[in-house]
Amino acid sequence: MRHIEVVEVGPRDGLQNEKTVLRPQIRAELCERLVSAGVRRIEAASFVNEDLVPQMAGAEEVFSSLVREPGVLYCGLVLNERGYERALGAGVDEVRYALPVTESFARRNQNTTVEEALDLALHLVERARLDGVRISVTLSVAFGCPFEGTVPQERVVELAREVAAAGPDELVLADTIGVAAPAQVRALLGEVLGLGPVVGCHFHNTRNTGYANALAAVEAGVSVLDSSIGGVGGCPFAPGATGNIATEDLAYLLQRMGYETGLDLERLISCAGWLSVHLGRELPGQLYRAGAFARAAG
């Protein structure tokens, strides 16, 4: 049975767009609940400007509050070298750097240019090797940009090739605003798979294609997918970039398709319900409301 690794991004990408700001200790508890549901890789926080993204304030406190579990990787998102240094100081197991593929998104999201962001990505990969920490590089808005529209596939492939040559542990293609369709996913992966690093995908369900895209990616050969408990999330700097695909919904789909995830559906459902209470609203995910089909449990 083929294993698909599900990387949980709820504590970071999920919460960064929420109106309700959760305390670092609650975000650490969310991580612990996810671990109890079988998650083994969690994007626990982002080391960014807290004035711009107050939902991510106290990243160091999140990491200091974690009860570390053997075999679990706790990741931190960074957007610049200062963030990288903060992440290292906090004790992350993996740095995740976001490289925007369009000039407009680079300027709005990170106040940089694509060329500068690429140079930084290559530099951080080199630093991570020396520092003995894992590093993933995510190509943001790889399937479409909220400001420039369609992104030429050849441009994404060009950037992916340059990043891959530096040797990161993983290269992630992100549909940051949820505009991709399965044919586009298969076409881009056909060019990127095989460049060297492990390739993962990050999908949003903004236009109700996220799960179809995730399945297309798996069938194309991807073995790593990002998702967010309850389907919460979105980018604060990308208009209309609503929720990620929900971890429990993705796990249900993959298990029903015969893939192994190592995730406990009932515990994921319980975790999504717990998060719904803390956020004071119903979450976009559907499984935590409908319940798992008995034959798919476990």
Results as ranks from 00 to 15, higher is better:
99 L>I: 06
108 R>E: 14
29 E>Y: 10
162 E>M: 13
219 E>A: 08
78 V>D: 00
245 I>D: 02
198 V>F: 03
30 L>P: 02
123 H>V: 08
236 P>G: 05
154 E>F: 09
36 S>V: 04
200 G>I: 03
196 G>H: 08
90 A>I: 10
39 V>N: 04
32 E>C: 05
233 G>D: 00
220 A>D: 09
34 L>A: 05
27 R>V: 12
172 V>C: 13
27 R>E: 05
238 A>V: 02
37 A>D: 04
247 T>L: 00
41 R>W: 02
293 F>R: 15
146 P>M: 02
165 A>K: 13
6 V>E: 04
167 G>R: 08
222 V>D: 10
226 D>K: 03
113 T>K: 08
209 T>K: 12
281 R>G: 01
251 A>G: 01
117 A>D: 02
6 V>W: 07
55 Q>S: 07
93 D>G: 15
154 E>D: 13
132 G>I: 07
177 I>C: 11
263 L>Q: 09
176 T>A: 09
254 L>G: 05
274 W>I: 10
108 R>T: 11
264 D>I: 03
137 V>F: 08
189 L>K: 13
275 L>M: 07
90 A>Y: 04
121 A>Q: 05
126 E>M: 10
66 L>G: 02
25 Q>G: 00
25 Q>E: 15
239 P>L: 03
289 R>K: 14
179 V>C: 10
140 S>W: 07
287 L>S: 10
94 E>D: 10
120 L>F: 06
213 N>G: 09
216 A>F: 09
76 G>P: 07
58 G>K: 06
270 S>R: 13
76 G>D: 05
159 L>W: 09
192 V>C: 00
88 L>E: 10
275 L>C: 00
174 A>E: 03
190 G>L: 11
178 G>E: 03
62 V>L: 08
95 V>E: 13
96 R>F: 08
184 Q>L: 13
160 A>Q: 02
284 P>K: 03
227 S>H: 07
218 V>R: 03
150 T>F: 12
110 Q>M: 15
264 D>E: 14
98 A>N: 13
267 R>F: 08
20 T>R: 14
138 T>H: 15
95 V>H: 07
151 V>R: 06
74 Y>E: 03
169 D>C: 09
195 L>F: 02
91 G>M: 01
138 T>G: 12
48 V>N: 05
109 N>V: 01
81 E>Q: 10
224 V>D: 05
262 G>Y: 07
61 E>A: 14
227 S>P: 03
218 V>E: 01
62 V>W: 00
36 S>K: 11
286 Q>A: 15
151 V>P: 00
218 V>M: 00
54 P>Q: 08
183 A>R: 15
264 D>F: 06
199 V>Q: 04
64 S>I: 04
115 E>L: 12
264 D>L: 12
222 V>A: 04
265 L>D: 06
51 D>G: 14
98 A>Q: 13
17 N>P: 00
60 E>D: 14
38 G>D: 01
67 V>C: 14
132 G>M: 01
269 I>P: 09
190 G>M: 10
255 Q>V: 09
227 S>L: 00
135 I>Y: 05
76 G>N: 08
278 H>Y: 06
72 V>A: 11
296 A>Q: 12
101 V>D: 03
19 K>T: 15
95 V>W: 07
176 T>I: 01
119 D>G: 15
215 L>V: 15
136 S>A: 15
258 G>P: 04
245 I>A: 05
46 S>R: 06
242 T>D: 12
